[in-house]
Amino acid sequence: MLSATGIVAGYRRGRPVLDGVDLGVAPGEVVGLAGPSGCGKSTLARVVSLLHRPWAGRVSVDGTVVTRFRHAAPASLRTRVGVVFQQPRLSVDPRFTLRAVVAEPLLAAGADRATAAETVAELADRVGLTGELLSRRPHEVSDGQLQRACLARALAPRPGYLVCDEMTAMLDASTTAALVRVVLDHVRDTGAGVLAISHDESLLAVWADRVSRLGGAGRPGAGGGQQEPPMTRGTQSA
């Protein structure tokens, strides 16, 4: 169980983006997270993928309470939660080939080059990348192809939980469908839990087992016209 309770987090002192948010993702479950722009969806994603230290609250992965974040968190805990970001262009090192991008977590875990190459080939096959594409650099491929590589990278350490932060926002319908299918296959094969963040309600209706809402999306008129991101009072299961 990947769970977050009473999360208060933000970037500037005195202006929390999240204020007392609870979230739980059970293994084998796809939890959708919806909400208006600026309500803190991505911040929550960063918190549960151990990339952003919350000001208060508790994050636990399979019963282990996380006390330290980013590099300070143990690598085994970090790789338990995979993450795919919204903008593939920014989330890969422009110097790497796609093959190196996908192999990076494997090599970081101490795999030797031969087994890493084998796993990369298998992952590339799963997300639909050809060998020719793997030898290109990020600026030579499309956003969709790059996002496939990012998904392959996130799946490489066989994470128990996968956080997809607007994974499909930049992509066309067919690529979206392909990537969602890859994620669902991973859930079926390994029993992983998925936190699927999107503002696309119709996608979440198909993809997720249940959908949580962040922010005042339910309240009329809360979404627009505000300068500051709305304070959240916890998620409500739909």
Binding site: R70, L90, V92, A108
Partner: peptide
Amino acid sequence: PFLDAAISGGS
């Protein structure tokens, strides 16, 4: 973000 991705990948 690519450093976030690297951290998440266990680097």
